[in-house]
Design a protein around this nucleic acid. Sequence first.
DNA 1: AACTTTGTCAACCGCAGGCAG
DNA 2: CCTGCCTGCGGTTGACAAAGT
Length: 290
Amino acid sequence: MGRAPCCDKDGVKRGAWSPEEDQLLVHYINNHGHGSWRTLPKHAGLLRCGKSCRLRWINYLRPDIKRGPFSPEEEDTIIQLHGMLGNKWAAIALKLPGRTDNEIKNFWNTHLKKRLLSSPHSSWVHKLSSKAEPINVKSESSSTRHMVQWESARVEAEARLSMESSLLNSSSVRKTDDSDYFLRLWNSEIGESFQKIKGKDGGVCQSPVSQKSTPTKCGSSSDITEQAKNTRTSAFANITPEQEDSYRPNVDDMVGSSDSLTSYDLIDSSDTALELLLDFPDGDDDVFQY
DNA sequence: AACTTTGTCAACCGCAGGCAG
DNA sequence: CCTGCCTGCGGTTGACAAAGT
């Protein structure tokens, strides 16, 4: 069958973008939108491939890009989400408005990963995060399965955060109580949202993914969404309502789950946790009923 | 001052999935 | 259902800068 190359490599400029190219791209997208990335370079008068234009726009030229170093809160969020999702940079980026997947990926690889690997428990982390761990939850009910999956992801996150905590303490970068560090994180943002759900009357909500196809909204979901949004410090402070809309479903994503389970069956916590977050059980499961 | 090593990050590459015809 | 195209994602590379010798 064969695949057409994304662009003709001959006559296509590569490497760093010049200010003039940036200007052309921004000007074109501001006036016309990006439309088809493949045809954009031609229309914009750029000697670049569409893929390169898309990357440049998404990672650098987009108006809502947040510049500057990552805040401690953002670091916490990245560590927390990476613990649950693994290398799902795009998914993690959705929780960090203004940050790109590329930026987060770079930050993880150059900063956070090193910190974790320098921990004496690194081998343990590696084992925990290994994708080779089998999933053995087939026989469980749907709700139990989700709970087991979630708990496993949570345990992994706890392990990572635990080490992060001790490392930070030892290096005096941040003053954090060892035993409280995970709880502090867990009690903030996402964790807080979970707690609020737990405190609710056991209403179950349709997954945000499902909501895409069926616009019917679950009332409690909206409430939870609002609560979850309120827990975010300044995440939505400097973005437009449109941009916020694009992130909102992901806030919903984060709140539909549970905690407190004692089964520590190991699973592939990256993919399954993502699934869990993005497609939490609908009315069949009573996971929120305690 | 010159050279080497290390760190950072923008950009590229290839693959997978979604979608339209 | 099949095929081909397009987009998005994650891993990797390479250029540049900073730090070290």
